[in-house]
Design a protein around this nucleic acid. Structure first.
Lengths: 226, 226
DNA sequence: CGGTAAATCGCCCGAATGGGGTATTTTTAT
DNA sequence: ATAAAAATACCCCATTCGGGCGATTTACCG
């Protein structure tokens, strides 16, 4: 990306709130240095667009809401970051709590802006990303600094909530899966029928949006679930 | 600090480079919402000013260089933070390395700006601090995010040579396995027959002393093979 | 060049898995 | 007390996997 000054910046918006999404699209449309590649109301929609796009059509930056129908903006970010390294993601959200900030960064978000950020600051942030910077609302930066000056405090004080809404039983089964045990072995370990173990695993896959053991193990480790 | 809108913001400058300090003073002097309480070229000088000031004369924000004669800007920040909680400190420096950033934050710096930041952005940053935010140059924010998303990672990423004596082809196959792909899918991905993929996987299992996909994925991730 | 190792390919068979579905029991929430 | 949700259990069927076996081709080394 040499000479970003004259380059068109490809942008995408993932925002479930109709009015806000449309308004944001219009506002961004006024900037000729930006090209709006796509807008969508869900993470799944975003992933579909990315999966079906030619590489030269992929957005440079995605403005990502966190609270979305279906998979969350954070989960979407994780999946995008796994497959589309060249697309940066700015979280654009009302959430200011440490958990969301922390998790967003963990899954690979490049920036984090609050939704009350003026549009010209948003545009500036979009450009900033391509220059290698991370645009962060100042109050969010304050929390980042807090996380660094008191490391580990957040992870331990907030009982690091488990993504995917897995139940304790499911987590226990998943741990066994991660160790490479067969359903039969796991059943013996947890004193349940193999059928039950299998049902649990089906439920786990459903919640984690995977369909193989390997994928579940990978995700469980990457997301520090086990 | 109620109603900062009409309040004069008391600012101090700690900067050893004569020309730069004077230039900065002049520039800040043009903003009538700012009052320059003192400027000094050393940490000791700064501490002296603070020790000898009435409480109402203490600066709200201090722009602190890091590289100073005598005690460093970081050490100065530490001491100020111990005794003058109401004075915020923005590091204003050329240093972009992780150590300096990390240490600055550890000793209590509220913000971190690079010296090439335009003066109007500096003023904006000064005001931002009193609003509870943390002004950070975007490239510094990028490093902050890196520190959070990969805490302690730096220590382990070195020279992680591949254990198990896996061949390049085997590593490639293992990467695909780790992504949750079936043998058939992997075969299509690497342009080999499914039988060949299976044989590779058998060889991988043998070398890694595992006998399931899940166990291989786990080991591959734990050992940073993929 | 010849021998050996590695890579590639193929098959058999039993075990295991994944996805769909149903049913019962237990727990939880109202 | 009742309804809904969660946990437990089971079945069917197709696919995939793991381990064993064997063969051919290619690459490497002395």
């Amino acid at each position: 990306m040499t000479g970003t000054t004259g380059q068109i910046l490809k942008v995408a918006i993932v925002e479930d709130h109709d009015i806000f999404r449309k308004r944001l699209s219009e506002l961004l449309g006024f900037y000729e240095e930006l090209e709006l590649v796509f807008t969508t109301e869900s993470g799944e929609g975003c992933l579909n667009y990315l999966n079906n796009s030619e590489e030269e059509n992929l957005p440079d930056v995605i403005l990502m809401d966190i609270e979305l129908p279906g998979i969350s903006g954070i989960e979407t970010t994780f999946q995008i970051n796994e497959r589309y390294k060249d697309s940066d993601i700015i979280m654009f959200t009302v959430f200011e709590n440490d958990e969301r900030i922390f998790e967003s960064i963990q899954v690979g978000a490049t920036g984090y802006l609050l939704k009350d950020t003026p549009i010209d600051e948003v545009v500036k942030a979009l450009k900033e990303v391509k220059r290698g910077g991370s645009p962060i609302s100042p109050s969010i930066a304050r929390k980042l600094i807090g996380m660094i000056s008191k490391p580990g405090k957040e992870e331990t004080s907030e009982e690091s909530m488990v993504p995917f809404d897995l139940s304790p039983a499911e987590i226990r089964i998943l741990e066994q899966v991660t160790e490479g045990k067969s359903n039969k072995e796991i059943a013996e370990e947890v004193y349940l029928s193999p059928w039950t173990v299998k049902t649990h695993i089906k439920n786990i896959y459903k919640k984690m949006h995977v369909n193989s053991r390997a994928a579940a193990v990978r995700l469980a480790l990457k997301r520090d679930i086990v």
